[in-house]
Simulated scan of single mutants.
Amino acid sequence: MPQSGSLEFIASCYLDLHMGVPFCLSPSEPSRPEAPQRLALAWTLGLRHQSGSWPPSSNPVAPECAIANSHVGADGWQKCLGQGLGSTVAEVCSKPAASAMKKPFGLRSKMGKWCCHCFSCCRGSGKSNVGTWADYDDCAFEEPRYQVRREDLDKLHRAAWWGKVPRADLIVMLRSIDVNQTDKEKRTALHLASANGNSEIVKLLLYRRCELHAFDSKKRTALIKAVQCQEDECVLTLLEHGTDPDLPDVYGNTALHYAVYNEDKLLAKALLLYGADIEAKNKCGLTPLSLAVYGQKEKMMKFLIKKKANVNAIDKFGRTVLILAVCCGSASMVGLLLDQDIDVFCQDKSGKTARDYAVSSQHNIICQLLSDYKEKQMSKKFSENSNPGKEAEE
Rank of each mutant, 00 (worst) to 15 (best):
V21Y: 03
V92Q: 05
E142C: 12
D178P: 00
S360C: 11
N180Q: 07
R145T: 08
D246W: 06
T132D: 07
K307L: 09
A214K: 04
L81Y: 01
Y146A: 14
G106T: 11
K281F: 00
K103M: 09
P388L: 04
A134S: 12
P55S: 12
H241T: 12
A42N: 09
S361M: 10
M378T: 08
K103C: 08
D138Y: 04
K306F: 02
R145K: 12
E151N: 09
L256Y: 06
M1N: 10
Y357I: 02
C24T: 08
K110S: 10
D216G: 00
T221Q: 06
Q181Y: 01
W114H: 08
K186N: 06
N385H: 06
V179N: 01
I10W: 00
K297H: 15
A74M: 05
G52W: 10
L223A: 08
H18C: 06
N129S: 15
E391S: 05
K374H: 08
Y146C: 07
H241G: 01
D341C: 04
L324I: 08
R108A: 15
L236M: 08
S26M: 06
T237K: 05
P248Y: 04
L15F: 01
L337H: 09
K306V: 02
A222K: 13
Q230F: 01
A309E: 10
L107F: 12
I323F: 03
E231W: 03
V72D: 02
D341P: 01
D75F: 11
P36F: 00
S217K: 15
A40N: 09
P2A: 15
A68K: 15
Q83V: 03
K390A: 09
A40E: 13
T254M: 06
L45D: 11
A68L: 14
Q228T: 03
P36A: 00
D75K: 13
R355W: 06
S109N: 13
S94I: 03
V148E: 00
V293M: 06
I365T: 13
K113R: 12
G242K: 11
D183S: 12
L286F: 15
T353G: 11
N180K: 12
V179M: 02
G46E: 12
V72G: 01
G126F: 08
K225M: 11
V321G: 02
P245R: 10
E143Q: 15
K380R: 14
S58Y: 04
S51G: 07
I366C: 11
F141Y: 14
K381D: 05
Y146M: 12
